[in-house]
């Protein structure tokens, strides 16, 4: 049991360091946790190593250490992916309730009904919270703005939707931040990561983004939105 305790701590400490260094931690926690994870991992592994080489006696190794070993194995071996729209997890967050602060450059004002090329060239990247905020707060100006958004494609009650999980602390408090899409033509598969360009469709009651172009993209390095609060 003593040796198992040392192995468990070394494995867990190594797991913390590995996921922090290779960037996998961003699938579960915010980027501000990277250095704390490395520091914690080094301490945990060092204490485990000290137990392994009998530098520190372990009086009574608790049975619960098996769970710590299991945690290390999940992190190191299973390496679960990030939350995804196809797992059915997550409560919808009313996008308009997300406090947000941003400015829209004049260059993004291409006017209503602009061509896809003009929108692509001038688009400002927004998330669903900013989109909803702009619709509510300055609809007249926003109607002609070229917008680029990144997220997972989903279909909710038959309505194409772009979803991005927003986290405050880590994936366990994730909520779905979504925007309806006015979409014509072929659609990607549900849960595909896409970049869409377009403009607000002008409907203030049920705002949608009129999609003028889209492409599938790899999952971003930071799949979750970190909006600060």
């Amino acid at each position: 049991m003593q040796r198992l305790s040392g192995v468990a701590l070394v494995a867990l400490g190594s797991a913390l360091v590995v996921v922090a260094v290779n960037g996998d931690s961003l699938l579960y926690v915010r980027d501000t946790m990277t250095w704390p994870l490395i520091a914690a991992g080094v301490v945990v592994a060092a204490l485990g190593f000290a137990g392994l080489v009998n530098a520190l006696p372990i009086h009574h190794a608790p049975r619960s250490i098996v769970l710590a070993l299991a945690a290390a194995l999940v992190v190191l071996v299973v390496r679960p992916g990030p939350l995804s729209v196809d797992t059915g997890f997550g409560y919808d967050l009313e996008s308009g309730k997300v406090l947000t602060s941003f400015t829209i450059p004049a260059s993004a004002m291409v006017g209503p009904g602009a061509s896809a090329e003009a929108i692509d060239a001038a688009a400002i990247e927004l998330h669903a919270g900013q989109f909803a905020f702009a619709v509510q707060q300055f609809p007249l100006e926003f109607e002609g703005v070229a917008v680029r958004m990144i997220g997972q494609f989903d279909v909710v009650d038959g309505q194409p939707t772009l979803v991005r999980f927003r986290v405050i602390c880590c994936a366990s408090d994730a909520m779905r931040l979504s925007v309806r899409l006015a979409w014509e033509g072929e659609t990607p598969e549900v849960a595909a990561w896409v970049e869409v360009i377009g403009q607000w469709d002008g409907n203030a009651d049920e705002p949608s983004m009129a999609v003028r172009g889209w492409k599938e993209i790899p999952m971003p390095e930071r799949p979750y939105l970190d909006l600060g609060s």
Binding site: L16, V29, M33, L37, A40, A71, V74, C170, A171
Partner: peptide, 22 residues
């Protein structure tokens, strides 16, 4: 899907807690 979500949430909670725990 449930197992995938469980393992992601489990990992997130353990990773988030460990630095403070240490």
């Amino acid at each position: 899907a449930d197992l995938q979500t469980w393992s992601t949430l489990f990992t997130a909670m353990v990773l988030q807690a460990m630095p403070f725990l240490v």
